[in-house]
């Protein structure tokens, strides 16, 4: 079970508080697929609904690493897959 931490705006859209969980996800794309299936309001907010490209000011972190530029189908760290570490969706630093 992958634990996911969403930023405040996306928690509000999904109407959740705290971490959420996605079952059986071993890749970044699978995590996003699972999130969008469970919380349809998140569709289009993290990646383009047509191309699947990550939105420019969204970042994905885990295990103190920036996974944003990893291919969507690259395996997630084992600690994330087994739920020991969370997968973080971050609104990037932007603005002055």
């Amino acid at each position: 079970m992958t634990r996911v931490v969403l930023p405040a705006h996306l928690r509000a859209l999904a109407r959740v508080s705290g971490e959420v969980e996605v079952a059986g996800a071993t890749t970044q794309a699978a995590v996003l697929d699972g999130l969008e299936a469970r919380y349809p309001a998140l569709r289009g907010t993290m990646r383009d609904p047509r191309t699947g490209r990550r939105r420019a000011f969204v970042r994905f972190y885990a295990c103190s690493e920036d996974l944003s530029h990893e291919p969507p189908d690259a395996p997630l760290p084992e600690a994330v897959v087994r739920g020991a570490e969370p997968f973080l969706v971050i609104g990037a630093m932007a603005g002055g």
């Binding site: 930023p7 705006h9 996306l10 859209l13 349809p40 309001a41 569709r43 289009g44 907010t45 993290m46 609904p49 047509r50 939105r55 420019a56 000011f57 969204v58 609104g91 990037a92 932007a94």
Partner: peptide, 27 residues
């Protein structure tokens, strides 16, 4: 809308007291 998370369309059916996101796929 916003620079981080893109476009959302919201709909209220009770005069703005509560809101629900609807579709946001503008292909």
């Amino acid at each position: 809308s916003g620079g981080w998370f893109g476009q959302v369309v919201q709909r209220s059916d009770d005069g703005g007291r509560s809101w629900d996101p609807v579709g946001n796929d503008f292909s």
